[in-house]
Amino acid sequence: MSNYEEFMEEKQVIDEMVKQNYVIKNINGTLEGDVVEFEKLGKTASRKSIRLTNPDSRKYVTTILIKGQS
């Protein structure tokens, strides 16, 4: 799989989480990539975490985070 295809796969997962009203609660850098924890509040509150291995996805997720903070 090309780097771009890998990015698109991980981006799709991130976009889906955002679409389902999950917000980023934490990002932890590890040797195996960034572990991103999402949280959804409300009646169906839940937490989910994903691991991002692709560098462009790791940029993308923090870009989303910064956009949300500003």
């Binding site: 980023i24 609660k25 934490n26 990002i27 940029k59 923090t62 870009t63 985070l65 910064i66 903070q69």
Partner: peptide, 14 residues
């Protein structure tokens, strides 16, 4: 988004 911007944002989150 710079590395410094990114780390600040993650720090704020944590």
């Amino acid at each position: 988004m710079s590395w410094n911007n990114r780390q600040s944002a993650i720090q704020m989150l944590q």
